[in-house]
């Protein structure tokens, strides 16, 4: 028996909008720790890891570890029927091949049940080792989204370089090239407007902008984004999901042959 009640149901709506472009089908795993997902895009270039900790739910009942295969486009269709202020409850019985999404309006005058078929998905979990990153950049998520969008009108790849000067996003294409430098800036009115650069050593990596742009679908979840870089490692682009967890996007770098 599984029953997860999320008062801030809009978070789940935003989570689905954030990952459905990157991943088609995925297993949602429920355990005592929380509600999680790990999945790769169809090209195995990017990986998304979601965790919503059990403490973040108003009610969290998960009698045994359960893995539920879902088509994310279909989940998104279901969740789009929930109001932004609705309380969302996920329910599944042991051995059932369906999951039920229950939507309650804030004043309890409307209650809806949407039952969705589950699917069998073969997926292997990858071990993501703890890594020391050469540089960690925390910046406003809207700023990062703007940079990725702007650069993708010029080129296909972005070089992200962190030095003492700041973080530089560069691209080149047929019509020309572009460089955007963001310097550390902590003298802002609100902490979420700050750009904070922690650098152990300079790092420069090349990534496909198509994936970066896909990651920025998570922007509505959080005012800030954290970009962790190490040479020879996938970049981690992390958005916090309120105080209950995170979405982490891992993207393998491009290398010169």
């Amino acid at each position: 028996m599984l029953e997860l009640r999320l008062v801030q149901g809009s978070l789940l709506k935003k989570v689905l909008e954030a990952i459905k472009e990157l991943v088609t089908d995925a297993n949602f795993d429920c355990s005592a720790t929380g509600f999680s997902l790990q999945a790769m895009d169809s090209s195995h270039v990017a990986l998304v890891a979601l965790l919503l900790r059990s403490e973040g739910f108003e009610h969290y009942r998960c009698d045994r570890n359960l893995s539920m295969g879902m088509n994310l486009n279909n989940v998104s269709k279901m969740l789009r029927c929930a109001g932004n202020d609705d309380i969302i409850t996920l329910k599944a019985d042991d051995g059932s091949d369906t999951v039920t999404f229950m939507f309650e309006s804030p004043n309890q005058d409307k209650i809806a049940d949407f039952e969705m078929k589950l699917m069998d998905i073969d997926s292997e979990h990858l071990g993501i080792p703890e890594a020391e990153y050469h540089a960690i950049v925390k910046m406003p998520s809207a700023e990062f989204a703007r940079i990725c969008k702007d650069l993708s009108s010029i080129g296909d790849t972005v070089v992200i370089s962190v030095t003492k000067e700041g973080v530089k996003f560069s691209t080149r294409g047929d019509i020309g090239n572009a460089n955007i430098v963001c310097r550390q800036n902590t003298t802002v009115d609100k902490p979420e407007e700050a750009t904070i650069i922690e650098m152990q050593e300079p790092v420069s990596l090349t990534f496909a902008l198509r994936y970066m742009n896909s990651f920025t679908k998570a922007t509505p979840l959080s005012n800030t984004v954290t970009i962790s870089l190490s040479s020879e490692l996938p970049v981690v682009v992390e958005y916090k999901v309120a105080d209950m967890g995170y979405i982490r996007f891992y993207l393998a770098p491009k290398i010169e042959d």
Binding site: V45, H125, G127, P234, K254
Partner: peptide, 14 residues
């Protein structure tokens, strides 16, 4: 042109 690597090159199956 730079070559795209895959995630499994960095993370092994559990």
């Amino acid at each position: 042109k730079p070559r795209q690597q895959v995630i499994s090159r960095f993370f092994a199956p559990k």
